[in-house]
């Protein structure tokens, strides 16, 4: 058991627990807060995997901006809790069953069919270079320049769309 492994197991436990918490909380605010924790634990995984830039982006964008937006909307709408009504009684058992089936398939894939990367020999130890922000920037602005720019347009469109959707029509009453 290396330190890495121990750290991984703890963090995995945390992330699964917080995900479960998010799922099971009746209050939406709690769910959001659990999710923030979950995102933070995943950010640590990124660090472990040598992706510091992604980890920072995860913290700032996800755990910061997006989750703040969620909380903001929850508070705004005052919709922390829903009434207890059962419209689709068989939905939950079916969902659980399917989820179990998916887990079983994944397990089969990972364990019985062996690790997909087993046959692939990783290149020589160049771990250090992978995490360098400079390399990431070079790839992003050379090889992936067009998708990058398209992403900026996408964000712009999303911004406009959000404004249009939430903006009150002229003459519309609350």
């Amino acid at each position: 058991m290396t330190v890495d492994l121990i750290l991984f197991l703890i963090l995995a436990l945390v992330s699964v627990a917080t995900a479960a918490g998010m799922l099971l909380s009746r209050n939406a605010v709690y769910s959001a807060l659990f999710l923030v924790l979950n995102f933070a634990s995943i950010a640590v995984f990124y660090l472990l995997l040598g992706a510091p830039f992604i980890a920072m982006a995860q913290i700032t964008v996800y755990a910061g901006a997006i989750m703040v937006l969620f909380l903001f909307v929850i508070m705004l709408l005052g919709a922390e809790q829903l009434a207890r009504i059962k419209v689709l009684p068989w939905q939950r058992p079916l969902a659980i069953g399917l989820a179990a089936a998916l887990v079983a398939e994944t397990a089969y894939l990972l364990i019985v069919r062996a690790a997909p990367s087993a046959g692939i020999v990783p290149p020589a130890e160049t771990v250090n270079t992978l995490g360098e922000l400079q390399n990431l920037g070079m790839a992003l602005f050379n090889q992936y320049l067009l998708p990058f720019e398209v992403t900026s347009v996408l964000l712009l469109v999303a911004m406009i769309g959000a404004i249009v959707l939430t903006k009150r029509e002229k003459g519309e009453r609350e």
Binding site: A51, L69, S117, L130, A139, A158
Partner: peptide
């Protein structure tokens, strides 16, 4: 990305985060 020592995986994640942000906004 870590296993194969390829930056492409991280780049994809970068884009996914951006798209997620847009998606959440809309």
């Amino acid at each position: 990305a870590n296993t194969f020592q390829q930056l492409d995986g991280q780049i994809i994640v970068f884009f996914v985060i951006a798209v997620a942000a847009a998606e959440v906004a809309v």
